[in-house]
Simulated assay, not measured.
Amino acid sequence: MTGLRADMFEEICPSTLLPFRVGTDKWAGMVLRCLEDGPRRYSELRVPLARISPKMLTQSLRGLERDGFVQRTAYERRVTYELTDLGRSLLEPLRLMCAWAEDHWDELLDARES
């Protein structure tokens, strides 16, 4: 498993324009993508998700855990988050939604601006 890149999500990213939400918050899809390659510590998630406040990231993780998409495991000195089978089942639909957003980028921006 490789580290998460700080530029994993561009500031202007199609995922921010998605009219669809996983759960109740707009960051959940990005969190799921960060967990795609295996368990991550909170500090690792902060690298590509630096635009999200720590409070919002915590709320997103709790919501994803509550909804059964993420499992939180506490060890003596650290906590990790990983996708459950249910969470993994969302990765392909999420990829399709992101591809859709890229294909309709201009239309989405126009609609937001009007």
Results as ranks from 00 to 15, higher is better:
R62G: 04
E102L: 09
R95G: 08
E102K: 08
R72E: 15
L91G: 01
E76Y: 14
V70E: 01
T73E: 13
Y75A: 03
D85L: 14
A74P: 04
F69H: 13
R72A: 13
W100G: 10
E82H: 14
S53W: 03
S53F: 13
E102P: 08
T73D: 14
E76V: 15
T58A: 02
H104T: 08
E107P: 00
E65W: 09
S60N: 00
P93S: 03
P54N: 13
T80V: 13
S89N: 06
A74G: 02
V70H: 00
T80N: 02
Y81D: 01
R66T: 02
S53K: 07
T58G: 09
K55H: 09
R78K: 09
K55G: 10
R62M: 05
A74Q: 15
S89L: 14
R77I: 12
L86E: 12
R95N: 14
Y81K: 15
V79A: 10
L61M: 08
E65M: 05
L96I: 10
L64C: 08
L86F: 11
E82K: 07
R72D: 12
D85Q: 15
C98F: 15
A74D: 06
Y75V: 06
P54K: 11
E82G: 08
L83V: 01
W105E: 03
A74N: 15
L61C: 02
E92C: 07
A99T: 08
G63A: 14
M56F: 02
T80Q: 14
Y81M: 04
Y81R: 11
L57R: 04
G87W: 03
D103L: 08
P93R: 13
V79I: 03
E107I: 08
A99H: 06
Y81V: 10
D106K: 14
E102R: 13
P54Q: 12
Y75I: 01
W105D: 01
D106S: 01
Q71H: 12
L94T: 10
D103P: 04
S53H: 10
T58C: 03
Q59M: 02
D67V: 06
P93A: 01
D103G: 03
K55Q: 04
E102M: 08
T58Y: 12
C98K: 11
R77M: 11
L83Y: 02
S53I: 11
V79W: 06
D85P: 02
T84A: 13
H104N: 13
G63M: 14
L83K: 03
S60A: 09
T73G: 08
Y81Q: 04
L94Q: 12
V70I: 02
W100N: 05
D106M: 12
G63H: 15
V70A: 07
C98W: 14
V70S: 02
R77P: 09
